[in-house]
Design a protein around this nucleic acid. Structure first.
Lengths: 212, 212
DNA sequence: CAAAATTAAACAAACGTTTGAATTAAACAA
DNA sequence: TTGTTTAATTCAAACGTTTGTTTAATTTTG
């Protein structure tokens, strides 16, 4: 999308492949489809990545390198309350999710496979990182007495990611049901992002906070 | 699973195909895979269903026929409170989800496709049915003054189905994180079912009820 | 000039589907 | 019950495509 050929052909193939894999699935996408869409010769996939499977792995490896960076700054540096940190975490999650929609769609597909491969390792790390971060915030909130005890954090993260996934894969349905067809795609995305963010925040708040 | 060959070969193929499609995906599952697993000749798929694609449609059509039956009884006949009806709805959802795991996994895959086909029509009906049912209960609760106004029901259903989907596709992760490896598969499923049910109930309760 | 990048062509393997013959089941008449 | 006929089912084999990958020659780059 940003860079174009000639400068970074490998990166361009990676980007195009991610889009197609996300849209149509790994098996349903042929290397010829990718080559045609990227404007390169078929043999370049083998040349740059070795195989179609390794190309898929390269996509996930590329994403694993940028994981867990912007998060820590939010968590440790500030003197925010646990609840404020939680809000920042959820905002960051939604923001990242929306800016990487095709990757998350692809990740959903790969999760359904449930084989053990370098790909699942990357996904496992991402989930673990989400989990650890939330655990830390919740733990802090519990020590301060702001949050309940006995929080099932894996379930919470399942709701977070699951709601985002479900909303994204059925956004056409959501648009139709809420009669939002008149909105531009951009405006709709913005609307959706805000809705999801508020929704997750209210769920998390209410499940974590003590009854008044 | 229940019936076996000779009596209902068509149904047996349908069942086997659902399992394989759910596990490995539509494109990644060959008609030879299905035929071998079902113990029939390859040509029988064309004979009974016409094509691989029509076989997939037949799976969804079979599920569309059993939709929206047991629900209405829960909703209309009783003199339950809206909150009690909501609990029954969620219990029914979780129960049905767990008893039809492979279908829901397959449905998740098809939802990611987002093409318009008879399959998406069936899925659309199912979502609509869930939505309408919840809408009715919520509306009743609002009239009685038990529930808040301005509930985003599509978002709620996204959380319901999304959480279930996410939990199911990452249940190995959930098992590992919660150190439940010692449990038998059966016991683990039971544990998961109860957890999910309570989790969804508390989310729905707290998002619907007025602040005390 | 050497190394890296790019290409068209070809490869065997796997794919969904069809064919036409062989087998089994059902229907019917005696 | 028989024997005969018709339809439904099952099968191995083959069909034409498409698949991912490789080859070997060519072009571009440093």
């Amino acid at each position: 999308m940003t860079e174009h050929q000639s400068t970074d052909k490998r990166g361009h193939i990676l980007e195009v492949a991610q889009q197609l894999f996300a849209k149509n699935g790994f098996t349903a996408t042929s290397v010829r489809d990718i080559a045609k869409e990227a404007g390169v010769n078929i043999a370049m996939i083998s040349y740059y990545f070795g195989s179609k499977e390794k190309l898929l792995e390269a996509i996930f490896l590329a994403h694993s390198e940028v994981v867990g960076l912007q998060i820590k700054s939010v968590l440790q540096n500030d003197q925010l309350t646990p609840m404020e940190k939680l809000e920042k975490l959820l905002d960051g999650f939604v923001e990242k999710y929306f800016s990487q929609q095709s990757f998350h769609r692809l990740a959903q597909r790969m999760q359904l496979r449930n084989t053990d491969s370098p790909i699942m390792k990357v996904l496992h790390e991402m989930k673990q990182s989400n989990l650890d971060l939330l655990r830390q915030i919740v733990s802090e909130g519990q020590k301060k007495g702001d949050f309940k005890k006995n929080i099932d954090i894996p379930l919470l993260t399942a709701t977070m990611l699951g709601t985002a996934n479900q909303l994204m894969t059925t956004k056409a349905f959501y648009k139709e049901v809420n009669k939002l067809e008149s909105l531009s795609e951009e405006a709709f995305q913005k609307h959706l992002k805000k809705k999801l963010s508020l929704h997750l925040k209210s769920i998390f708040k209410v499940l974590l906070k003590h009854e008044p």
